[in-house]
């Protein structure tokens, strides 16, 4: 939906569930398409980092990141079951109908990063909002410098998008470093927090001309920021997506307002510099 279109901003479009893929415990990926092809066409032009409002009729609506890149043909959400609405979606079988409106929010300004190195740092399901940017960058590989992913989860069973990760690793000039807090018998890789990967032998992170994307639980976020700043990253070189309770997604209900920003309009993507100026704890 474009700016200033005199349309009903609260009216979702009908979507149909195609298939469901189990990711990790309590997290599933839902592939879907719009019932009306015109809606599908209008929706295609989203930006990495944007989100949509998902309606389960009779239960409610919630915001969800758009993990696919606009360069991909399939549309999907990856959703963790936490409360009433997400639980209802988790019960859905292929063919079921739900509502989607969007895309909303600012998204990552991928064009403005052209010529830069990209460092993606994710913890747990924080990989969901970053996935779009990663796939977009790989698709436009020639536009960017080095691309690195540092991804950690609590244990090996909590690593998401593993097949995608393996696929991405084959790309030219793409580095992927994984770690888990606690290893099990299946795991022979790194053990420890994500920030530990930065100091691993053989790992070098360019600071000059680099943008770092950080998404994950609040504790991980704070430690990673500290590490990046210690390496010499400036606050404006670090971007993240914020999560806030949302009801409308279009700047009207007031719920997502944090300090001076509406997360749904001005975000969810903010630089660390902006986050500090919001004037409220995040």
């Amino acid at each position: 939906m474009s700016w200033f279109e005199p349309d009903n901003i609260y009216r979702p479009k009908i979507a149909i569930l195609d298939r469901v893929v189990d990711e990790i415990a309590e997290v599933k990926t839902f592939f879907w398409h719009f019932k009306n092809p015109a809606d599908q066409e209008a929706f295609r032009h989203f930006r990495p980092g944007q989100f949509a409002q998902v309606s389960i009729f009779g239960t409610g609506e919630f915001p969800a990141s758009l993990p696919p890149s606009p360069t991909e043909t399939e549309t999907f959400f990856t959703i963790r079951q936490v409360g009433s609405v997400t639980a209802a979606l988790h019960q859905f079988k292929p063919g079921a109908q739900f509502g989607v409106r969007g895309p909303y929010g600012n998204g990552f300004p991928m064009e403005s990063y052209q010529g830069q190195n990209l460092v993606f740092v994710a913890g747990g399901i924080g990989l969901i909002p970053l996935r779009s940017g990663i796939v977009y960058a790989l698709k436009n590989r020639e536009k960017y410098g080095r691309i690195q992913i540092f991804y950690g989860s609590r244990n090996p069973r909590d690593l998401m998008y593993l097949t995608s990760l393996q696929e991405w690793q084959k790309a030219d000039g793409f580095e992927c470093h994984l770690t888990v807090d606690r290893a099990d018998a299946s795991w022979s890789g790194n053990v420890g927090v994500v920030g530990g990967l930065f100091k691993k032998p053989g790992v070098s992170i360019p600071v000059e001309n680099t943008t770092a994307f950080v998404c994950g639980p609040p504790v991980m976020f704070r430690f990673v920021i500290k590490d990046l700043v210690a390496m010499g990253f400036k606050d404006h070189q670090i971007v993240s997506t914020l999560e806030r309770y949302m009801k409308c997604g279009v700047g009207k209900c007031g719920h997502c307002c944090i300090g001076v920003a509406y997360v749904c309009l001005d975000g969810p993507v903010f630089t660390y510099e902006q986050i500090q100026k919001l004037g409220e704890d995040i």
């Binding site: 239960t59 209900c253 007031g254």
Partner: peptide
């Protein structure tokens, strides 16, 4: 004041 919440009712 403008804030509202949204709810589905059967």
């Amino acid at each position: 004041c403008t804030c509202f919440t949204v709810s589905d009712r059967r």
